[in-house]
Structures are given as structure tokens and as C-alpha cells.
Computed example of a mutant assay.
Amino acid sequence: MDEYPLSGLESHPRRFKAHWFKSFSWLEYSPEVDAAFCLPCYLFSRKSSPFTSGGFRNWKKLALVAAAKEVVDVHAFFLSLSNIINVVCSCKRNDELRSAYATEISHLVATNQIETGRGANQIGTLKRSGDTRWSSHFNSICSLLRMFGAITSVLEDLATNGSTYSQRGDATYALKSLLSFDFVFILHMMKEIMGITDKLCQALQQKSQDILNAMHLVSSTKSLIQQLRDSSWGALLEKVSSFCNDHAIQIPDMGASFSDIIRSRRKKDVVTVEHHYRVDIFTSVIDFQLKELNSRFSEQATELLILSTSLDPKDVFKLFSVCNICNLVKNFYSLDFSEQEKIQLDYELQHYELDVVKAPDF
């Protein structure tokens, strides 16, 4: 087919990609149901799975941005982030931002607060983020943190000297958001989370997939996210507090009672400020990330994909493994082989591993 049908959300429709056939030799596509199948599994396996029964048609990418936005405070953060970038990134203001950033760097170098060297302290611009691309959000957050002082200066100038009330009002609103503890806390938190998950998201977006590498990245990403949840709260809070002190941002009393409009109207139990940031935001966001990762890459699915790479003929069966193939049969296709066939398979694969290299067309 020249083009495959679109499906999914109207705002972000997805479709099957023809180049996947080159990446996955086992793949088969059914135009009748607009779904992908594992051809060998469909023909020979008696075990039901999306690749053998109804077909797989969830073309969405890993939805970590949407998962993070399940936490209301994070959703509000991304709205503020977008607004700040839009206010600052007009053509004229962008020039002012670069100038302010250059001035800030010169001051930091002069006072020995940062080191100089080749490639260091290059003058960049504030990155706009896309709606769904995780890396674009990560780039926006990193550039905003890097240029925070310069952005503050530009917004302060615009809030005071803007040519219209609209410019002054927009800049004032953006500045209040930028200099709030809420914004700074989530800014640092999302940088840590996105820094861990960015490599996986980029790997999954590549046209030519290295399944084994991607699955190892899934495992390491889950582990690092869990470590962040379990043992990094103190370090994060210390980093945020230090940043706030450097930029004259008020830090709330973590032991005080937390209250906002929603909590007070619903008469929820009284919690501390620290509980709000640690449990309601930090832990909740990470739990949504883990939930998304686990729903897309369960331990069973990850193991299946890793073991299946042993059948990949790429690079002269570089990943061929007798042990992995036997485990694949044992763990996922046990009903398709008799006990005697399982015993014989081990020896047959050992013969194959030695004999195949002697074939004339190998």
C-alpha cells in the first residue's frame, strides 16, 4: 500500500508505517482490520495475543507527557511554560533574551562562578515545545533553566516598559508564574524525570529499531525512575531550594499546613506543604510514568521481545542464542512443543549454530 489509514485521536492521528517491514521481518499487515500481526505466531502459535488474534493497531508513541499531565499541577505547569515561552520568544524579545543571557554569562565568568572553555556557555535560544514530543519538552525545560536569569530580566523589562497594556499584562502574568515556587519545583522535577526517560523516548522514535537495545533501555529507565521515587526527594528539594535562594524566590515552610482553593472547598484532610509537593506531585507524577511504562512494556512483553531477538537474521545472526530460543519456547510457546521436542530443540539448535556458518550462501 502507498498509504495506510489514519486512526486514533483527531488531534494526533497515527498510522501504520511501511518502513516497519524492513525493521521487523516477522511483521504482516492486514488492510481489512488495519492491524499488524506476527506472521509466524499467527500461523503456528496457539497462544492468543494482540499479534495473533485481533492484531495490533495502537500506533501511538509512548505517552509520557500525557501521563505526567494527569497530575493537575503538572498540567498547569506546562500551560505556564508554554505561555512564558510565547511571551519571550517574539522576534524582538528573542534578541533581548540573547543579549541578557550574554550579559549574565559575562558576569558569571568574571566572578568565577562558571568555567570557560571550548564549547562552554554558548549563547542559545529558548526552545519551544511541541504538543506531544517528549524531547521537545525536555529541551524547553533545559533551556529555560539555563537562561532563567535572562528570561526573568526580559519579562521584568517587558512588564514595566511594554508598549501596550496587553504586553505588560502578559509579561506580568508570565513573570509571576516563572518566579513561583510551584513552577520552579516542577521545572526541576520534570528535568530529572525527562532526563531519565529521554533516551528511551528517542530510541522508540527511530525508524530503524534495535529491539534488544530498546528493551534494555526500558528496563534501565524503569529502574532509574523507581530509584528517583525511592531515594531522590531530599536531593531534589535541596536543589530547588538552592535555586530559589539564588533567584530570590520565596520558599514555603514545608512543615506548615497546605491549603489551596480545591482542597479547602472539598474539605480534604489537612496535609503539610511538604506532603503536597512530595506525595501529591512528586510521587504521583512518577507513579503515572511507571504505570505508562508498565502498561506498554510489561515484564512478560519485554522478555518476549528480548528473547525473540535471537531469531533476528540481521548481521549474520549476530544475536543468535540457543539458550534464549529454548527459553522462548519454554516460557511462551510451551503448548506448541511436546516435552521430547523441547529436549531435541536444544541439540538441534547447537547443530544449527555450527552447521549454518558452513553453508555456501552464508
Rank of each mutant, 00 (worst) to 15 (best):
K69N: 09
S49V: 05
K291A: 11
S80H: 09
L228R: 01
F243P: 05
D287V: 03
K69T: 05
K268Y: 11
L97F: 05
T103Y: 10
L354D: 13
K358M: 10
F362T: 01
V65T: 12
D336N: 14
D210V: 09
L155A: 00
H19L: 09
D315C: 12
V65W: 03
F44M: 12
F56I: 03
A67F: 00
K267A: 12
A359R: 12
V218H: 01
E104W: 03
R133A: 03
F51L: 14
I343C: 12
F37Q: 00
S80L: 07
P360G: 00
A68P: 00
L178F: 03
K22N: 15
R133Y: 08
S264D: 15
T302P: 04
F317G: 03
I85Q: 09
D315F: 11
F288T: 04
D346Q: 11
D280S: 15
K69R: 15
C142W: 02
S135F: 09
I281D: 03
D361Q: 10
S257W: 05
N327R: 11
G55T: 05
S223H: 08
T132Q: 04
M194I: 04
P13E: 09
S334A: 08
S259A: 15
S219N: 10
D2A: 14
L304D: 06
R118N: 10
R133E: 06
S298T: 08
I343S: 14
S163G: 01
L6H: 10
H188C: 12
S177F: 08
N86H: 14
L236S: 07
